[in-house]
Amino acid sequence: MGLHFLRRMDWLGAARSLGYLRLLALLNVAMLVLLVATSRDGVDRNGFLLGSDFISFWTVGRMLGEGANVYDGAAHVAAQRAYFAPENGYTAFFYPPSFLPFCRPLGWLGYFPALATWLVVTGAAHLAAVRAWWRDAGVPAPLWLLFLGFPAVPIVATHGQTAFLVAALLGGGAWLVRSRPVLAGVLLGLATIKPQFGLLLPVALLLTREWRTIGSALVTAMVLAAATTALYGAQVWPDWLAASARAQDAMAEGAVGYAKMVSPFAALRLLGVPTGAAYAVQAVVSLGVAGLLAWAAWNKRWSPGLAALTLAGAPLVTPFVLDYDLVLLAFPLLWLTGQGLRDGFRDWEKLAILLAIAAPAFARPLAMNAGVPVMPLVLALLFAVVWRRARA
């Protein structure tokens, strides 16, 4: 027993894994059904509007239709509370202007029709990207079971967040680099709506000399920025920069809640480490992950392994990442599982897969109630085993 029990995990075979996935899927679906069934007028038992964070995007869509400044914090608060006024709290909006064209159509619908449409469309996009990786990996579990059994999925749904969309763009783009490089660049360029998750992409794409993808991504990002400027005026950019400064202060002060975040920075702040020291450690981790990715990509061509490694490292290199963003891990998890099924699982790989799948279900409660941040360690283990495979 001892470490060998965790290092090899020979007891975790296909049948037992499917059983665990079915149990997780059942719990996830039951939780969502219970949440909706026990809500009143769209407000859950804790006083939160269903799809809690989505009200920020929906409000922005309404404000854009009225020509209002969406980066004016006071105006955004007033517009949001005109629809729903909680006893405390407010869902801020700090996304870059390139996200505004995605928000505008949401304002054409009522809140709940917009929320349902958003989750269906972005969830379908995420599933389409996951399906490509799933088919290549040869994982025997049905796609619907993998989707419903991943605890990060209901977290996205209950928050009405952008994570499905961002994961679809990054996962789909990374997958298409070799087969359809221009389309891959288009998807990656659109992913600049949440730029902190694409920090490693330039490293991997430059070292593998994927010039067509790089060019397509740059053109797409510039066209999106130009279209945004034409639609909403050049002033949105300085307004966003001012809002970003407020976002930086809010994050440092813990306004978001360090227990909800899964970065090394947030973990250290939760443990009481001063802000400056926490940022310094985050910088060391980010540079280390980028260096290991560069090592794996040196003198190589783009491959599914490098794509998986880039996406596995994405949550580690940004200080601002929450548990719902972990749906991005579906892609490296599928690739790693497929490699293990083909060639045999190596030491620690099954443990990394199991923890990365299950941890989103308990990481936030554990951090909030016990002050123990486990997710950065889980992310580091997953990155390490994917890196070992990708280098080979």
Rank of each mutant, 00 (worst) to 15 (best):
W108R: 10
M368G: 12
R104K: 07
S179P: 10
A204G: 01
L148K: 03
R62H: 02
Y279C: 11
P360N: 08
L341N: 09
L381Q: 09
M251C: 02
V256L: 00
V372N: 04
G288D: 01
D44E: 06
A356H: 03
A137Y: 09
W118P: 08
R40L: 14
G189Q: 13
F383Y: 11
A124W: 07
G149V: 01
A234N: 11
F94S: 14
L334E: 08
G61A: 06
A225W: 13
W144F: 11
G344R: 13
G149R: 02
A225N: 08
L231E: 05
A283E: 09
L224C: 07
N299E: 15
M375W: 00
L328N: 05
L187C: 06
V256I: 02
L287D: 01
V273F: 07
A267Y: 03
S17W: 12
D347G: 14
A243E: 15
R301K: 12
P360R: 00
F164I: 10
L341G: 12
T228C: 08
W387H: 15
A30C: 11
A283S: 14
G288C: 04
L100G: 03
G13C: 02
G288Q: 05
L309W: 13
V374H: 05
A167R: 04
A247R: 07
T208A: 03
L115R: 03
L334M: 09
S286K: 03
L115T: 05
Q80P: 08
F84S: 05
A277K: 00
V156I: 13
W118Q: 06
A245I: 07
A358E: 11
V120R: 01
A167M: 06
P319V: 13
G172T: 06
D325C: 00
V70P: 13
L316E: 14
L106H: 04
R391T: 11
L148R: 00
F197I: 02
